[in-house]
Design a protein around this nucleic acid. Structure first.
Lengths: 222, 222, 222, 222
DNA sequence: AATGAATGAGCCTTCATTCAT
DNA sequence: CATGAATGAAGGCTCATTCAT
């Protein structure tokens, strides 16, 4: 809400040093610091320095640390969602190379999932969900739910097109995600270890393989 | 190591400045507080009060907050692992009701997974893995790895018995877990919402269903 | 360096959470407390109270206790040096009453040396030089060295004027100081006991007497 | 006082590991730690470890930290005094090489004065004299006063023997010490820097030179 | 709206000291 | 007497937050 107010004056004058918009700078800096240090260890001062802004300015814009976190999380969730959805929407229903297409999609989703930024978002969510439960709402409605939703849509269309056999596209979408992310989480040691591209491809292949045996096209694919 | 020293005097009277088993009391209290408040928000003082002990006593036993966390995590991981493994080992290879048995196993694992204690352990791990990477090692080697390992063993036996078709039992175990936990995580809103028993059963059924289509017995079971 | 920033607003009103010149107030309070209690026994809280300032303000200005000590020592060394040098510069080369003039100088230097403030500075230096060796540099270059240097200059001029016979004016200055301070230190029990003015005069006389026999004017004074 | 009680049983039985006497071990350890870390930074625990003794044992023997310090200081003062006095007593009244003998004495006294242990004793005295004034009495009556006293005696004898001209041997002794130690203190940066033997000899020569011009034999020695 | 200075609450940790055996 | 465990009282330092300009 307050997030937009600033956008309007994003182009206004502003004395000295060229600057995009303080509010934006703060949000970026906040995310940088929050995701680097975790919410509790992050300090407003660090964020202020990163944003080249006085501490008080942050308070003027966001009121307090929690609110700042909420805004930062919202912004990041948006970014994360955008990347995931873009990947999903590249999935074309092509009868002849369904498996390849799904594998490519799986790979792309895994890349998003294993990205540092994604991990950091999840880390903060998990860490703070006890104290700040609404954080999850924010992130969920901007990223998680939307992503699975879009994926389910795709699967529904593929089902209609006779390429998949999903009684419940949403369930299929959830399981597709789970088959991708579950093993990846284990292998990346909660995002601590980088997973090579080759490994990612392998993970995608395994997931798709299982997925297709359960939800593959009606007749063939025994 | 030093963890056992205390056990010896576990039976003493309580005396004035009693001693029963302070170490154990501290460990329990630590876990209570850590998992309730998160590592950073937890204070040694709160733990001391919870354990009915002087703050310094904690330092005498564990040195510092981090070390205390490590010990507490280790202890809890042990508990979590025990419960999971017990559930797995109850899985009997019975040809006629394989599906029912797997569903029961899935349900039990889900109950473990969705248990508050489990969630708290995971929360702390995820939250602090950046700053304290060895925490993951501790938990992984005491719980996560062991659990998947035992599960894989089971699947291997079932494969040999001709009840499953798993080329790579470890992969099967990972995917089985993923199919269970992934959807559960989403539905429980990262452990924030309790999932009803009925829901858990449903989740188990869905997971097993997909699982069996991929890894079911060779001939039958279309 | 940062020491001056505050000077600029030295004239402001006092306001509610006044500001007059906190930095200066802190420095003074710090010296009061440090020299009263010694570095280790002094607490930041005591200093804060003495300066009527919040503890944090001290940290904002000086970063930590050590740095605060360094600044306080520097400030005090400056004061001590000023007094000593002023005394030395009052020494006029007068042929007829050289002895009287030297005795007066000796007396003045002893007064400086035996002053509480001087003793406190020395106490802290000696006590902490092990842990904080650079303290000595600070004090030395602001007080000790300068003082002996100025004294040596004076003696050099007197030598040129034929009033003294100092092959090495610096040595003469050092020995002059030593003859004054050494006995004074013993008599004052490391600054614990006040020495009466009569005693100080006597000490000066003894020192000058010995000094002149070694460095007195060329011809006479066998 | 309590110091002697233990000495009596120094040879008694004592269970286990061969040991000289716990009390003695504690005293040594105390001095080691006190002089290494300074009184405030020294911890009873460190002393206990150094002495291979339980903390409580220290309390059994000495009651509290201050008392322990007093005893340790007393013991060390004794040691320091012994070394100094030994040096002084080696001074023989020899007409033909008085200067050489004095220089040798000066050199020996400087070595004592500049010794680490001496500095540490002085450091602690100076640091704590405010809070624990009786420390000075202890050290003074066991070391400082005795040393100057013995030196004054020597000078008195030399005066009677016609080798020196000291109206007040005590003054002469004090000034002799001052001429030695004053410059040495400056050059050693309060005991921080080691002074080479050559330098020490030079310092002794300078001191003796001035000293003899003031207190040399009656007629000769211009 | 932006800033520099100041604040108060609190946290981790240390240490001299005391119990109970 | 010696010991291991436990304690209470601080102390240094950090941080979110607020004034006053």
């Amino acid at each position: 809400m307050a997030l937009e107010r600033a956008a309007d004056r994003a182009l206004q004058r502003d004395g000295f040093r060229g600057r995009i918009d303080k509010r934006q700078a703060i949000l970026q800096a906040a995310w940088t610091v929050f995701s680097r240090d975790g919410y509790s260890h992050a300090t407003i001062e660090a964020i202020a320095m990163e944003a080249r802004v006085a501490k008080t300015t942050i308070y003027n814009h966001f009121g307090d640390k929690e609110t700042l976190l909420r805004h930062a999380v919202a912004a990041d969730a948006e970014r994360v969602a955008a990347r995931n959805i873009a990947a999903i929407e590249r999935l074309v229903p092509d009868r002849t190379r369904l498996r390849a297409a799904l594998e490519e999609l799986g790979y792309q989703l895994l890349r998003c999932h294993c990205d540092e930024q994604s991990w950091q978002l999840r880390r903060i969510l998990v860490a703070e969900v006890g104290r700040l439960p609404d954080l999850l709402d924010i992130a969920d409605q901007r990223a998680m739910s939307r992503i699975v939703g879009v994926l389910a849509d795709r699967f529904a269309r593929l089902t209609i097109a006779g390429l998949l056999t999903t009684g419940d596209p949403l369930l299929a979408a959830e399981q597709f995600s789970a088959l991708l992310n579950g093993p990846a989480d284990a292998r990346s040691r909660l995002g601590t270890r980088r997973i090579s591209d080759r490994e990612l491809h392998a993970l995608a292949r395994d997931a798709v393989s299982t997925f297709l045996q359960a939800f593959g096209p009606p007749a063939r694919e025994a």
